Deep mutational scan, measured.
Amino acid sequence: KRLSEREFDPDIHCGVIDLDTKKPCTRSLTCKTHSLTQRRAVQGRRKRFDVLLAEHKNKTR
C-alpha cells in the first residue's frame, strides 16, 4: 500500500500533518522527514512519544 492509503495509527506512525495533503504522516515513528519536536507534538498517542519510540526500536531489533 502507498503511504497515503495506510490507516493512520498515532501509536505506530509519525503523525505529523502534511501541509499538502492535510493528512497525518503514516511513516514509522522513526520518520526522517519530520523532526523529533514535530513528532513529539502529535496528539492522540496512548503513551509519550519517547516511550513508544523506545518500544518500536526494541521490536525491530
Rank of each mutant, 00 (worst) to 15 (best):
R2E: 15
R2K: 15
R2Y: 15
R2Q: 15
R2D: 12
R2V: 15
R2L: 12
L3P: 07
L3S: 11
L3I: 13
L3W: 03
L3K: 06
S4V: 09
S4T: 13
S4D: 14
S4I: 06
S4P: 08
E5F: 10
E5A: 09
R6Q: 12
R6V: 15
E7Y: 10
E7I: 07
E7C: 09
E7S: 14
F8A: 05
F8W: 07
F8S: 03
F8G: 03
F8E: 02
F8H: 04
D9F: 06
D9G: 03
D9Q: 14
D9P: 02
D9Y: 07
D9T: 06
P10M: 06
P10W: 07
P10E: 03
D11K: 04
D11W: 03
D11Y: 04
D11I: 04
I12Y: 12
I12M: 14
I12L: 12
I12V: 10
H13Y: 06
H13G: 01
H13Q: 06
C14M: 01
C14E: 00
C14A: 00
C14G: 00
C14P: 00
G15W: 02
G15M: 06
G15V: 01
G15T: 01
G15R: 01
V16G: 01
V16H: 03
V16N: 00
V16M: 01
V16I: 02
I17L: 15
I17D: 02
I17Y: 10
I17E: 12
I17A: 08
I17P: 12
D18I: 13
D18V: 07
L19W: 08
L19M: 12
D20S: 14
D20I: 07
D20E: 12
D20N: 06
D20W: 06
T21C: 07
T21G: 08
T21N: 09
T21M: 10
T21Q: 07
T21F: 06
T21W: 06
K22D: 07
K22R: 13
K22M: 13
K22E: 12
K22N: 14
K22A: 12
K22T: 12
K22Y: 11
K23Y: 04
K23M: 13
K23D: 04
K23H: 07
P24M: 06
P24S: 05
P24N: 05
P24K: 12
P24H: 09
P24C: 05
C25S: 00
C25V: 00
C25E: 01
T26V: 11
T26S: 09
T26E: 08
T26L: 13
T26N: 08
T26D: 06
T26C: 11
T26A: 08
T26W: 06
R27E: 14
R27I: 06
S28W: 08
S28D: 09
S28V: 09
S28R: 09
L29R: 01
L29H: 02
L29Y: 02
L29V: 05
L29E: 00
L29Q: 01
T30C: 10
T30D: 12
T30N: 07
T30Q: 09
T30W: 08
C31V: 00
C31D: 00
C31K: 00
C31A: 00
K32Y: 05
K32S: 11
K32G: 14
K32Q: 06
T33L: 10
T33C: 09
T33A: 13
T33Q: 12
T33P: 02
T33N: 08
T33D: 15
T33Y: 06
H34E: 00
H34G: 00
H34R: 00
H34L: 00
H34S: 00
S35E: 06
S35F: 01
S35D: 09
L36T: 07
L36V: 12
L36F: 05
L36H: 10
L36G: 03
T37K: 14
T37Y: 05
T37L: 12
T37N: 04
T37V: 08
Q38W: 02
Q38N: 04
Q38L: 11
Q38E: 13
Q38D: 13
Q38V: 03
Q38H: 05
R39Q: 11
R39G: 01
R39D: 02
R39I: 03
R39Y: 00
R40M: 11
R40N: 05
R40G: 06
A41Y: 05
A41F: 05
V42R: 01
V42T: 02
V42N: 01
V42L: 04
V42F: 02
V42Q: 01
V42W: 01
Q43G: 10
Q43W: 05
Q43K: 13
Q43V: 12
Q43M: 10
Q43Y: 13
G44F: 03
G44K: 02
G44H: 02
G44C: 03
G44N: 05
G44I: 02
G44A: 05
R45E: 02
R45H: 02
R45N: 03
R45W: 01
R46K: 10
K47P: 02
K47D: 14
K47R: 11
K47S: 09
K47V: 11
K47H: 08
R48W: 07
R48K: 14
R48Y: 05
R48V: 15
R48H: 15
R48S: 15
R48E: 15
R48L: 14
R48G: 15
R48M: 12
F49L: 13
F49Y: 05
F49K: 04
F49P: 03
D50N: 04
D50G: 03
D50V: 03
D50E: 09
V51F: 07
V51W: 11
V51I: 11
V51N: 07
V51A: 11
L52Y: 02
L52N: 02
L52S: 04
L52E: 03
L53F: 06
L53T: 04
L53M: 07
L53S: 03
L53Q: 01
A54W: 09
A54S: 13
A54D: 13
A54P: 03
E55C: 04
E55M: 05
E55R: 04
E55G: 05
E55K: 04
E55T: 05
H56A: 11
K57H: 15
K57W: 13
K57F: 10
K57I: 15
K57M: 14
N58W: 07
N58E: 15
N58V: 09
N58T: 14
N58F: 05
N58C: 09
N58Y: 05
K59F: 11
K59P: 14
K59E: 15
K59G: 14
T60C: 08
T60Y: 04
T60W: 08
T60Q: 12
T60M: 14
T60A: 11
T60V: 08
R61Q: 15
